[in-house]
């Protein structure tokens, strides 16, 4: 975790109300991995007292640049759209635990709902760099909100679903999953809670339905993996990036927790934002 300056290089409205911004921030890029996030300070403390968390949308370690992708939902996000190239802002990062890909996984299924694309986008780059095959299933309300394929690496197979059927599959993105789940070695998802819950239900019954082997330990090797540990997550078929209102983003305020099956709330900013789907208590449980 480092506190560093970031200089805006480029700011574009890629979709109505959705912005893509590139920052030069070598301190924040070094060592950052897909699934982690930065906590960014707005310049207006008198009104906006909290930083804003953004996933690393893309990470370029050689150039020292990162991009963030966000929707303007309030005064905070609107403030970021007012920035001009050359402006400097203050970022805290890299924060949280990244996606963990099992070294044996060849085929990765990425599932994104709407702005959830920002959570898994960097993983596509990482996976292709490591020579894996990537299919990205993307769901949006209408064609107007579909993430432009030109912003994805050429190697990614990109499948779109829209709620109104204006492009691609007519229905939810989760409808597309059964077609790919046998192909996929692991799946990674980010998006609205109902989407993640549906995916989790699919993943939970996957072994029985498909008769596939789960990525387990070598026979007889050591102690069982501690739930929630990076090693255990590495073996999980479905990993989800969770969202929650956030305060400090370093684990101090306990504002951004999710309830887990262990009965103890876990911090999205510290133990997350990436969790194995089976760690999350999807029905709450408070």
């Amino acid at each position: 975790m480092r506190l560093g300056g970031a200089q805006l290089l480029d700011s574009r409205e890629i979709l109505p109300g959705q912005w893509l911004q590139a920052y030069l921030a070598p301190d924040l890029v070094a060592g950052a991995r897909a699934g982690q996030f930065v906590h960014v300070r707005t310049g207006d403390y008198s009104g906006l007292v909290l930083r804003r968390p953004f996933s690393y949308n893309t990470i370029d370690p050689l150039a020292g640049t990162l991009t963030i992708h966000f929707r303007t939902v309030g005064r905070g996000t609107a403030w970021f759209t007012q920035l001009r190239p050359g402006d400097r802002i203050d970022m805290l990062g890299p924060l949280g635990r990244p996606f963990e890909v099992d070294p044996r996984s060849r085929h990765l299924l990425l599932v994104a709902g709407g702005l959830g694309i920002a959570g898994v986008r960097a993983l596509a780059d990482e996976a292709i760099r490591d020579g894996r095959q990537v299919t990205l299933l993307f769901g949006a309300a209408t064609a107007r909100e579909v993430y432009p394929s030109s912003l994805l690496p050429d190697e990614v197979e990109y499948v779109v679903a829209t709620d109104d059927g204006s492009v691609g599959h007519h229905g939810f993105v989760t409808d597309l999953v059964p077609e790919y789940e046998a192909w996929a070695d692991q799946a990674f998802a980010c998006g609205p809670l109902p989407m993640l819950r549906t995916l989790s239900n699919l993943a939970a019954t996957r072994r029985q339905r498909l008769g596939v082997a789960s990525l387990g330990r070598k026979r007889g090797a050591g102690r069982p993996l501690a739930p929630g540990s990076p090693q255990a997550r590495k073996k999980a078929f479905l990993q989800v990036s969770m969202e929650q209102n956030m305060g400090c983003a370093v684990g101090a305020c306990l504002g951004c927790v999710v309830m887990t099956t262990s009965g103890t709330p876990q911090r999205v900013c510290r133990e997350g934002p990436v969790f194995a789907a089976e760690e999350i208590a999807w029905e709450g449980g408070w």
């Binding site: 008198s46 007292v49 305060g247 305020c253 306990l254 009965g263 709450g284």
Partner: peptide, 23 residues
């Protein structure tokens, strides 16, 4: 204590509300 259900924090003009519930 496991604390309160989420959301637990939200920004308000010039401030924030929290209800961590003493987790």
């Amino acid at each position: 204590r496991i604390g309160n259900p989420t959301p637990r924090v939200t920004e308000t003009p010039g401030g924030m509300l929290n209800s961590i519930g003493l987790q």
